[in-house]
């Protein structure tokens, strides 16, 4: 309706929107650029390839990968239930599930401590069994999953809703059982949303700091992920901190950039061809 009367498809954006958009872009990019100006380039490679740096980077990548898998295992069913199910308290459940998004991560860490800690809700039973989660890599994964899960749920639920239920209904009419509908229709349909949700979850896990520090502690090779290493190095060695920050930014840019390109073009097609 809007474009049709004017004779061409693109909608002209008001100038003031451009101005504010540019300001928004600057607001995000300028601090990153400022950081780049402080990088000690001659020492960059030795700084980021030192043993503590590589240990922290490896730990971050490993734990974030595990957290993303955990997010998929827990988040896909959660998103399905929220998008397709009908039950009392559904809206309340959605708001609560999204809570870690708005919660300061430190608060998340405290909550996890009171759950899985030695004197926590579940932790006291676990410690009877000789399991202590705090100060372990498991604690890092739990902290990351806690903060990253809403990203996956939100992204997937949005995809499920916009995909609608027409194809699912059609498949069901043609005799497909709920499991077949899920595997052959629903999941291929929302694959882009699922992928971008997983990437967001991975990126969020990679950047997790507050909950990890509060709940897991900080020990090289066990719980000290890259953000914690940056925080610590900043105390005595700002050059290393800045260099590692840049590494984290680059990883984030590469992951998010690659996946969003794929989700907008490639994944949709691959989802369809696999289905055909």
């Amino acid at each position: 309706m809007r474009g049709a009367g004017r004779g061409h498809g693109t909608i002209t954006i008001p100038l003031w929107i451009w101005v504010f958009a540019a300001a928004g872009g600057f607001f995000i990019l300028l601090p990153l650029a400022a950081m780049v100006t402080r990088v000690n380039w001659p020492q960059f490679v030795p700084l980021v390839t030192s043993v503590p740096s590589l240990t922290a980077l490896g730990l971050s990548l490993r734990t974030s990968a595990v957290s993303t898998v955990l997010c998929l295992v827990l988040g896909v069913p959660l998103a399905m239930v929220l998008a397709r199910g009908q039950f009392p308290g559904q809206r309340l459940l959605r708001s609560l599930v999204l809570l870690p998004l708005v919660l300061p991560p430190v608060v998340g860490g405290i909550a996890l401590l009171y759950t899985f800690g030695r004197r926590g809700l579940l932790g006291s039973s676990l410690s009877v069994l000789g399991i202590q989660i705090t100060f372990s890599t498991t604690a890092v994964v739990l902290a990351q999953t806690f903060v990253a899960l809403p990203f996956l749920v939100l992204s997937l639920e949005g995809s499920l809703r916009s995909a609608g239920t027409r194809y699912e209904a059609a498949a069901a009419t043609l005799g497909a059982g709920p499991g077949t509908v899920l595997r052959r229709v629903t999941l291929p349909l929302v694959l882009p949303g699922l992928a971008s949700g997983a990437v967001l979850a991975f990126a969020r896990s990679l950047g997790e700091f507050g909950a990890t520090l509060t709940f897991a502690g900080s020990l090289e090779g066990v719980t000290r992920t890259l953000p914690l290493e940056i925080y610590l190095q900043r105390e005595t060695d700002p050059d290393t901190a800045v260099a590692l920050s840049l590494v984290l930014v680059l990883i984030a840019v590469v992951i998010v950039g690659l996946t969003f390109r794929r989700t907008t073009s490639g994944l949709l097609k691959s989802g369809r061809t696999r289905d055909a």
């Binding site: 800690g117 897991a216 719980t223």
Partner: peptide, 17 residues
């Protein structure tokens, strides 16, 4: 654990972890 601040050390002790 090697924490970045005294407060974090205290927190881990007072919570009993």
């Amino acid at each position: 654990s090697e924490e970045s601040s005294v407060t974090d050390v205290l927190g881990k002790v007072s919570s009993g972890e």
